[in-house]
Simulated scan of single mutants.
Amino acid sequence: MYKVLVKCPVCGSKLKIKKLKCGGCNTIIENDFSFSKFDFLTSEQIKFVETFLKCRGNIKDVEKALGISYPTVRGKLEEVNEVLGLSERKDNELERQNIISKLEAGEISSEKAIELLNQIK
C-alpha cells in the first residue's frame, strides 16, 4: 500500500481529504477532512521517530540503533520537530519576521523593535 499524498504534485499546496470509504460495507463519507501533522513526515522521519520511541528517547541508544552520531540524532529530532510545528527555532523566526513587518509598516519604533528582538531566545 502507498503512503497517502499530502501535497499537490503540481503546485506543492496541501491537499484536502474529501471522501472516505469503508472497506467492509462500502459506506462513503464525503466532507472536508484534515491530515494529521504526522502525515507530513517522510518515511525516513517516521522510522526515526519509531526508533526514538522504541529507545524511550535515549539518544545514545538511538545512535547505536541507527548507526549515526549524536549531532545527527539531534539534527533529525529537530527536523521532525519542525515538520510537526514543535520547533522553537521556527517559532522564533516567525516572531522575528512579525516584529520586522511591524517595524516596516511603522507600527512600532526601531527602538521597540530592537527591544523585542533582544527578548527572543
Results as ranks from 00 to 15, higher is better:
V83F: 06
D39F: 13
E111L: 15
K76G: 00
G57I: 02
E30R: 09
I99W: 03
K64P: 09
C11N: 01
E82K: 15
N58E: 12
K37L: 05
V49S: 10
Y70A: 14
G85F: 00
E88T: 08
S13C: 15
L116T: 09
S109M: 01
I29C: 04
K64E: 11
N92T: 07
R74E: 14
E111K: 10
K7T: 08
G24Y: 11
I28C: 10
S36E: 06
V10M: 13
K64W: 05
K21G: 00
V10H: 10
S110F: 14
L94Q: 06
N118M: 07
Y2D: 11
V83E: 09
R74V: 11
D39R: 03
A105F: 07
E44T: 06
C55G: 05
G67L: 04
E93N: 06
Q97K: 11
F48P: 08
Y2T: 04
K47D: 15
S43R: 07
Q45T: 00
E82M: 12
V73E: 11
M1A: 13
I108L: 04
N98K: 14
K76E: 12
K7Q: 06
Q119T: 12
C55E: 07
I59W: 05
T27N: 09
K14L: 13
A113E: 05
G106W: 03
V80S: 00
K112F: 05
E104R: 11
K18F: 02
I46H: 03
K102Y: 05
E93Q: 15
F52P: 13
L103K: 01
E107L: 09
D91I: 03
R74K: 15
K64Q: 13
N118R: 14
R96A: 07
K7W: 02
G106F: 01
L116K: 10
S34V: 08
F35H: 14
G24D: 09
F52M: 15
N58I: 10
P71Y: 00
V4P: 10
N58C: 04
I68W: 06
C8V: 01
I59G: 13
G85T: 09
